[in-house]
Amino acid sequence: MDKWLSLLDGFQYNLVLFFGTIAAAVPLGLLICFCSMSKFKPLSYLSKVFVWIIRGTPLMLQLFVVLYVPGLVFNMPMKSRLTASFVAFIINYAAYFSEIYRGGIESIPKGQYEAGQVLGLTKTQVFMKIVLFQVIRRIVPPMGNEIITLVKDTSLARIIGVAEIIMSAERFSKAGVIWPLFSTGLFFLAMCGVLTLIFGALEKKMNYYKN
């Protein structure tokens, strides 16, 4: 029983990383998305290069870079390993989210914007009242996919020494007890199960029309 409790202690880190990353990466992704869709070319190129680097390198490597580079290069060491994990996850997921948003926004037909425009709506009204809902409806499935990946990616924080669930299980396997390590899978499965149900319900709720 105390082994389970110990695993639960570790899983708290996974949950904190998960919710913290969602809370920050969802809006940050929107900002990156608007930058990469900007008509101001330098800004759009800059954010595209950023997305390329983030998506083009392993998250594991990014964790190391975030942990060590501020101290080595700028002489401002990371305050904690958990903070470093947050920064790495948020940046990484924001980049992926921004591409999902961009895909969603660009998939809305031009005619929707034009219809709004000839009806005298402001650009903000067109976005808020016409486009936004359609975008959200389209990005719910890919976002669900990405968010479920994040649940499992949080275990990567182990690589820079955050005592998340797999690290806590490893203490037991090093002492010769292997089952806690395998049991960690149940925690991830449960979490992903809940998310699958939530996203399924959300999709169903938004699918009241076809197009």
Partner: peptide, 13 residues
């Protein structure tokens, strides 16, 4: 002016 489009462009939601 008002404009009626060839492809209707109604708001689906």
């Amino acid at each position: 002016f008002g404009l009626v489009f060839q492809s209707f462009n109604l708001f689906p939601q």
